[in-house]
Design a protein around this nucleic acid. Structure first.
Lengths: 164, 164
DNA sequence: GGCAAATAGTGGACAAATGCAACTATTTTT
DNA sequence: AAAAATAGTTGCATTTGTCCACTATTTGCC
């Protein structure tokens, strides 16, 4: 039974119905905002727009030889979307691809010099953007949210938490 | 300086570079997952796919006469995107539109009987989906995250926190 | 009163992203 | 040796978002 209010003409008189208490609503909405902001800061940077490019670049940079399918799992894309993303980044001369010697079905990804340079440039930007964007949340609370979401994420993608 | 690990073939040996500590990464990633899950549950429901339809329906239902532009602010879309969304929902006979008597530039939105019915059906689904999806996070922590994100969201869209 | 600026909504064009399903190549199972 | 699983590719249809220009109405100012 929704509480009914009439003809609100400004946002201040609106309540969000059940969405008010729905975590998914806030995740979905904050996503739009934070993504937009990030795109704005990375404007022209060859890795703007859409989730994935940044993660892919950083991941390949710090895990030379990593496979597309592994990245796909991490960013939750299907293989075809992943393939296109990589194709795009190869055309931009950020990545290089070679089929694995041991597993000739699979590929190994490497950054190009240009890719490495961009990764180095982007790393601090991404970190700063997140901090800045959420700056109206206290550091402590940011950490808290992140900690919780990190655990959720890890369970979801099946990371066990062990490092190598 | 990224820590370099070589050729990971499974997700368990991957660390996320700086993204590991980047709140925006988790928001963006969880968004993909939660949206997909929601779409799956609402399959066929006329309001699946993409942020906005659900929020719009619930909002119009609980605020009869609300304006498109107000909803646009809430879900962070531009007016043209909002217009198309509404158009679509009108075609599906979920909403009804009439120009405001006092402000002939503006419109007032109302749910149709079918829209009201759908809203009633959807409300519990949305709530449950969020709870279920995040069920591997303790209730308490869910509430904590939600509380923080809610405040962030409100600041962002310029809600002052007063209710009507 | 009348003109300029702001606000609400519409419409078109265009570039991307997404998801699905079919297809090849390689490896593993049985 | 055949069947099933895995990695990646390709094509297609759908959706989405964005940008920009355009109309209508209202408001503010001179």
């Amino acid at each position: 039974m929704p509480k009914v209010t009439s003809k609100p003409t400004t946002i201040e008189h609106v309540d969000l119905d059940v969405l008010e208490d729905t975590l998914s609503f806030y995740i979905r909405t904050m996503n739009i905002a934070v993504s937009r902001d990030l795109d704005a800061r990375l404007d022209g940077c060859e890795v703007a727009r859409g989730t994935g490019k940044i993660t892919t670049l950083l991941l390949v940079d710090s895990h030379p030889g990593i496979r597309p399918s592994v990245i796909a799992q991490i960013i939750m894309k299907d293989r075809s979307a992943m393939g296109r993303l990589i194709e795009q980044m190869i055309e931009h001369d950020l990545l290089r691809r070679q089929t694995s010697a041991s597993e000739r079905r699979a590929q190994e990804l490497y950054v190009t010099p240009k890719g490495a340079e961009l990764a180095a440039m982007i790393r601090p930007i991404v970190t700063k953007q997140s901090k800045d964007f959420f700056s109206f949340i206290a550091e402590e609370e940011q950490a808290q949210v992140m900690d919780i979401l990190r655990r959720a994420y890890r369970k979801m993608v099946g990371m066990t938490g062990e490092r190598d």
